[in-house]
């Protein structure tokens, strides 16, 4: 199957303001994701998973190495090209409230993305597209003139997902998409994401610290620690037969419903 995303030898180093400390956020990261697959990335805070997502999304450029989306090198996004280019990689963040403009009705939030990426559409065609996107994530059209604070956490995340789909992406980068949500709402959003993936023929990068969720959704899992990939493989290999010591520690540390002393 065709490779959708290729990350080759990516390294990134940050220098502190006083220039006396450097942090190697990523060292020599290489991996690929096939079209239509879900890659789960797990690791603890500071392991470099967020830097990596930012680089894949083009929000940050690597010091060395390349990121290729469907074989084309993925350029760094500058203000000037942003408006005219169809973005193939879209992000969904952890906190859906801070990713929505509080002063904007959610209809507008999605409409403006459609207007940027499909400028040829007429007013009524655009309206139809916005309604369709909202419908796909289970938000009714009547609610679309409301503001972000009038929705629950789960609904806000649905809106953020609809907004990212408005750009017709090929890859969705999901950075802890359910971590900020109530437990009883998480399963609902995961179900929605899995459904949309097949509807829109998407490829997912699912970044999370929650091994249980990553195990459930991923085809392949990549474990990161201190800016390096310590292990990668198919989900059942990594979860059931981990080779790396750090992966073993991580799996061992996971609270389990079945484990009681």
């Amino acid at each position: 199957m065709a490779l959708k995303l290729e990350v080759t030898n990516v390294s990134k180093r940050y220098v502190s303001k006083s220039k006396d400390r450097t942090i190697q956020a990523l060292s020599d990261i290489t991996f690929a994701v096939e079209e239509g697959k879900i890659l789960g990335i797990v690791g603890e805070s500071g392991c470099g998973k967020s830097t990596l997502s930012r680089i894949i999304a083009g929000l940050e450029s690597p010091d060395t190495g390349t990121v290729q989306v469907t074989g084309k090198p993925h350029p760094v996004i500058s203000k000037y090209v942003l408006k005219n280019r169809q973005r193939t990689v879209q992000l969904v963040f952890q906190d859906p409230y801070s990713s929505l403009n509080p002063r904007q009705p959610i209809y507008k939030a999605i409409d403006e993305v459609v207007a940027i990426y499909q400028p040829a559409l007429t007013g009524s065609e655009r309206d139809e597209r916005v309604s369709d996107l909202l419908g796909r994530v289970g938000i009714s059209r009547d609610m679309s003139n409301r503001y972000a604070h009038q929705f629950s956490g789960g609904q806000r995340q649905r809106i953020c997902i609809a907004r990212s789909l408005a750009a017709n992406p090929e890859i969705l980068l999901l950075d802890e998409p359910v971590s900020a949500l109530d437990v009883s709402v998480r399963a609902d959003i995961i179900n929605l994401l899995l459904e949309l993936k097949s509807q829109f023929n998407l490829t997912y990068i699912f970044v999370s610290h929650d091994l249980e969720i990553v195990k459930h959704v991923s085809d392949d899992i990549m474990v990161m620690n201190a800016g390096k990939i310590v292990e990668k493989g198919s989900w059942n290999e990594v979860m059931e037969n981990p080779q790396d010591q750090y992966t073993k520690t991580l799996i061992e540390a996971m609270p389990k419903l079945s484990r009681r002393e």
Partner: peptide
């Protein structure tokens, strides 16, 4: 949490 099959629909509670 416990009754799920890999990449299959999870048991969920509709609404909030």
């Amino acid at each position: 949490l416990i009754k799920r099959k890999h990449q299959q629909k999870m048991i969920s509670i509709p609404g909030t």
